[in-house]
Structure formats: structure tokens, C-alpha cells
Design a protein around this nucleic acid. Sequence first.
DNA 1: TCCTTTGTTTCGTATTATAAAACATTGTTT
DNA 2: AAACAATGTTTTATAATACGAAACAAAGGA
Lengths: 255, 255
Amino acid sequence: MPVENTVQSIERAIRIMEELATEKEGMGVTELSHRVQLHKSTVHRILNTLLQYGYVEQNPNTERYRLGMKLLYLGGAILDRMDIRREAHDILNALAEEVNEAVHLVVPEGDRAIYIDKIDSKRTIRMYSQIGRKAPYHASAVGKAILAFLPQEDAERVISKGLEKFTKNTITDPEKLKEHLEMIRQRGYAVDDEENEVGIRCVGAPVFDHTGRVIAAISISGPTVTVTKEKIPELSEKVMESARRISEKMGWKAG
Amino acid sequence: MPVENTVQSIERAIRIMEELATEKEGMGVTELSHRVQLHKSTVHRILNTLLQYGYVEQNPNTERYRLGMKLLYLGGAILDRMDIRREAHDILNALAEEVNEAVHLVVPEGDRAIYIDKIDSKRTIRMYSQIGRKAPYHASAVGKAILAFLPQEDAERVISKGLEKFTKNTITDPEKLKEHLEMIRQRGYAVDDEENEVGIRCVGAPVFDHTGRVIAAISISGPTVTVTKEKIPELSEKVMESARRISEKMGWKAG
DNA sequence: TCCTTTGTTTCGTATTATAAAACATTGTTT
DNA sequence: AAACAATGTTTTATAATACGAAACAAAGGA
């Protein structure tokens, strides 16, 4: 998708890095050039550039390339500017300890919610998640918890872009979603009942700042075998309590 | 520093992103073009490219540019491939809780040690640190803890590159450092006594893998007013115990 | 030994990125 | 109100750069 007034070679570098992000063990030049549909020597030259600056590293034995640690520096700078991450971390830790499931913190980012912190569960059967990844607003507990408390015109804009179907449980009817969001506003928490991913259930609650705006959401997430429907009442109380505590740390006042 | 067979415009994009990483609140086009010494319209075009792909974002009110969340996705992919981070996190949390100081996990990265996880202390007076940033081997507790257990030729290579002076306490004499590393090997822990930064003291210990190689280090770090010299014996025991537990999780066997 | 495959290097030139100039907008000063 | 200053954004001729085809080097397998 070429965009106007952009630098093509930078776009190519971006494509290459994003392709490398999908392969934990890295990739060779030939495979990568097939994937991004660029000539092998072009890919090699771009990789060499990224290699010189630490954005890519090469395994000397396998000669495969993978993302380099310099991206950690840049990502770390972003994490570091997020006050809410600092404020929420202990509360998330305590919550994860208490319920023994994965716990996540997300913030709104464009048309999706982005994971900015997580505490993994200690169970053998776990769900997979990754900082920096995004979740759809309408199909995730954290997304719905944010959507329910966004200003109406913002929520309308999200809904009007269409509600993609991820599983047979995903809410794809705008009217149905709006009713659902009203219910979330009444209850104070949201449930993703295998709407985003089969076999995963999440209970989420919104976080507010000093102006009363929703700025984030947290969730308790796990496989449906451990996050059962019977547990929802208990988990919802706990996630709301933690969200309230984080909100207060962000300057929110009840009422 | 131009390098051969590199793509100049990609290098420029990298320089721009790294400059933006130094300014939490972002920067305008004009300031940025002064800093990277490129024409304003060139900088603008590169920024626009990065903007389109989420690597940079622009505050609509101030028009300032800052790093974008896509870097969090790439950084998250790197964090996610690190098994040690997953294994160590709970142990680090417990340690931080126990000593009420900042706790860090670092791994070797080229000629420095890079921070890949941290637990901040709950005290009012804290030290500043950031995931993705690097510490010099010879002047940090984590660095020295790794250096002391590296194969001799690797340690020699590090030392032969010169020992930069950061404070009046920094060890800059190669012979003195080698004696110091021997002491660390005997004791099993390292101390950074305001060698990297005035007012900061750290106690670190190495982490080993199943082959017996040093693969990481952890530390307890804080301002000298709370991490006092009197506390070093106690803190060293605790940091070594935690490092040993992480080592075992990484497959290390004593003996 | 020959063949295949992969990563790396070379180099002519077509394409791309540059940067100077102009423009649009906002805030400040006279 | 008009003039000025400063900033971000757009336009465009062309110099510079990036591209990609071809060749090369090395390793592994038949």
C-alpha cells in the first residue's frame, strides 16, 4: 500500500522488520525476500543497514536474521513515558497472584486497544499474549470496557467501521453491540466469552483518569477450562476493584 | 558514520527515531532537523513515512512528533522470545518485595549489558532505569557479575577496549579490574559502589544456564541513602539466592 | 566431482530521494 | 490592522541514491 510523500526504502525496511517480528527464530535472506517480494540483494542491503545499527542481528551459525535489541531501547522509551504502566504494575501483580490467571493492561491506540503490560499466570495451560499487540475493541473484554465508556461519537466511529467476526460468538450486529455496551456501563465490567479467540475467556474493567475519561482497561484472562462461567461473578468483582484502585492512582474521583 | 552497502535513507530514519527516543514529549520538525542536521523537508518526509506506519505519532495540538506504538509491537516480539524473562519475573518480583528496592534483569548484548526487565521500588526516592538501555560491563554490578564469569578471552576483549571513567569510583585500571573480578568469582556477587552513577549503589549476581555459562545477571539497585554499605551483606545473600533460583530454572546444576 | 542452495558482492543506470523554494497557518509585535 | 516571525507542509527539477541482474564464495549433499 504505497502512500504519498513517503520514502520507499524506509517502507521496505519497515516491512522487513515486521516480517521478522513474526518469526522468533529469525529468517534467511532468501526466505525473507520471497515473503516481502523484493529482490534478494535489495533485501540483503536493507538487512545490512539494519544490522549495522542494531535493529537486526544475525546468528553467525545459522546465518539467519532476527530483530535486534535496539528496538528494545526504542520500545523501552515508549513504555517509560507511560505513567499508568508504573502506577498499575503492583496492582496487576497482586491481582494475578490472587486469581492465578493472566492479567493485562491495555490503552486505546487508534482503532484498537494495545497491550502495554501483562502478568502471566503460573498455570501449565496458559493463554498467549504479547506486549505491543492489539485487540479489537468490539471483541475483547478490555476493548469493550473502553468502548462502553468512550464519548458517544468516538464509540460510534469505531462501530461504524464494521465489526469483524473472529469466532461464532463475536458480536457483529451494531445494535446488539450497543445494547451490550449499555449493559457493561450498568455492570461496570465486560466479558469476552470466546468472542475474540475460541477457548479464551476474559473479564475486563475500565480505568479512568482525573477528568473522568476512560484511559485504559485491565483484564483477567485465561483458557475457558480455568476461567469458567461460574467464576465470572467473583472475577468481575476483583477486576473492578483493581481497576478502581488504578483509577484512583490516576487521579479519578468517584461520583 | 557511513558504513558500506547501507541505505542512506534508512540510516536517516534510524537517526530520527533515536533522536525522538530522547524526548518524552516529542519534537517539532524544525528542532529535529537541526538535531540530525538534515533539511527540514527531508525530515518531514521521513517523519511522514514513519507516521503512516505507526512508528511515529503526531500530537494534533502541539504538532510535535514522538515515537509510535508500532515500536512497542516490535519490542514486544523481542521480549517475548526471551525465555529467561518469563522464568525470572516472579523471582524478581518477590525479591523486590522483600528488599523494597529496584530489581533488574540484564543480558549480555555486544559490548554492554542490556536491561530486559525491572521491578521498580515503592520508595519515594528511586533510581531511574529503562528497559532496553545498556550498562557498561566494568562499571555496573550486573555487568561485572557477567564479566567475572565470562570465558577469559571474552573478558579480555571487553577489558582491552578500554575502561571508561564515569565517576571517581569507576575502576579504570585493567589490572585492578581483573583482581576485582577474581574477588567477585570468589564471593559470588558484585557491587557497583557509585562506579556507574554518583549516588547509586547496586549489588548484582550472575545467572547461568544448563551448560554452566553466564547468560544474565540480576541486581538490587537504589540510591546510596537506602542501599547503604551496611546492608550489602544482607542484600548480597538475597540477590545470590534469587540468581541461583533463576539459574536452576534455566537448567543450571550446582557443581 | 558436480550440483544445489544460500548468503554476499559488484556495478550500470533507472528510479528515487533530496532540498530549495514556496505556501499555509498561527502567534506575536508594532 | 498590518507586518513580522516561526512552524509545519507542499511542490518540483535533478542530482544522488537504491535497485536488481549477474557473478561470486562457501557449504552440504548426491
